[in-house]
């Protein structure tokens, strides 16, 4: 439905090997920063806890061993915290899970160990010169909000569960009517989405949007909205007399 030159969109279409197109909802820098902040707090808490534990163990002797253990802990935590959690079946760190996002391959598959290693080792560059400036600029420069590490690892951060199905089913009272002009597929899709979402809006808003289509419906105000509904219902279920 979307052409390759479509506007920037958080829905990214990916074609699977089976020839079907799936849509990934990529996560933007804002929600990722929040997830990162949570992870950073977890990291600080873990460092403090580890330092206290190792310090207390040091009281019983062998301070050097505990100091060494703390250094090793810091090394692995620093470089491989994300890798560890991305390799679980959730594909997300605790912060990312809390925000409802996860890491995936660009093709929608699960992130693999080499990809995870690359994107997290390169995090060092994304962080530069301070607080992910490079990473942030990179997310703004491509359609999939990829930071530099994501670009090299061929990964994206996506919403873990695409938005839940909307159970709202409101009966729209109008007699299905065909459109006076032939409609292209994107136009049909737009009208179908309009009648799907219209029940969520106020009357004024529906009429305001329907007025934009007055060249098609040939009317404004409530009458325009009614005609738009009629076209939409026709697109959705066909003419009442026609067998579906």
């Amino acid at each position: 439905m979307t052409s390759p030159n479509a506007l920037a969109d958080t829905l990214q279409t990916v074609e699977l090997a089976d020839g079907v197109e799936i849509q990934l909802r990529v996560a933007g820098p804002a929600i990722r920063s929040l997830a990162w902040t949570i992870d950073a707090c977890i990291a600080i808490a873990c460092y403090i806890a580890a330092a206290i534990v190792m310090g207390m163990l040091g009281v019983f002797g062998m301070e050097n061993v505990w100091e060494g253990a703390l250094l090793l802990f810091m090394f692995f935590f620093n470089w491989f915290y994300n890798v560890f959690f991305e390799m679980t079946r959730h594909g997300a760190t605790p912060g990312q899970r809390f925000m409802g996002i996860k890491v995936a391959s660009v093709n929608g598959g699960p992130v693999r160990l080499p990809q995870s290693l690359i994107r997290n080792l390169l995090r060092f560059i994304d962080f530069m010169p301070a607080f992910y400036l490079f990473g942030f600029l990179s997310t703004l420069c491509n359609q999939r909000f990829q930071r530099l590490g994501d670009l090299v690892a061929d990964t994206v951060v996506v919403y873990a569960d695409p938005k839940p199905a909307n159970p709202l089913r409101v009966q729209i009272n109008a007699t299905p009517q065909p459109s006076p002009h032939p409609l292209s597929r994107p136009e049909q899709a737009a009208i179908l989405q309009f009648i799907e979402r219209a029940p969520l809006w106020s009357d004024d808003r529906r009429i305001e949007l329907a007025n934009l289509l007055s060249p098609l419906t040939g009317a404004t105000g409530p009458e325009g909205l009614r005609r738009l509904y009629a076209i939409g219902l026709y697109l959705r279920q066909g003419h009442p007399s026609k067998k579906s």
């Binding site: 050097n64 061993v65 100091e67 060494g68 090394f75 080792l121 390169l122 560059i125």
Partner: peptide, 30 residues
């Protein structure tokens, strides 16, 4: 003097030297 300080130095070399390796790799992206 003792095993403990050997282990600590080992941990330090991992922390420091392997860390430098990883930064050297990441620096390639610039």
């Amino acid at each position: 003097e003792e095993f403990g300080s050997n282990f600590m130095m080992f941990a330090f070399y991992i922390y420091n030297n392997v860390g430098i390796d990883l930064r050297t790799f990441a620096g390639g992206l610039l």
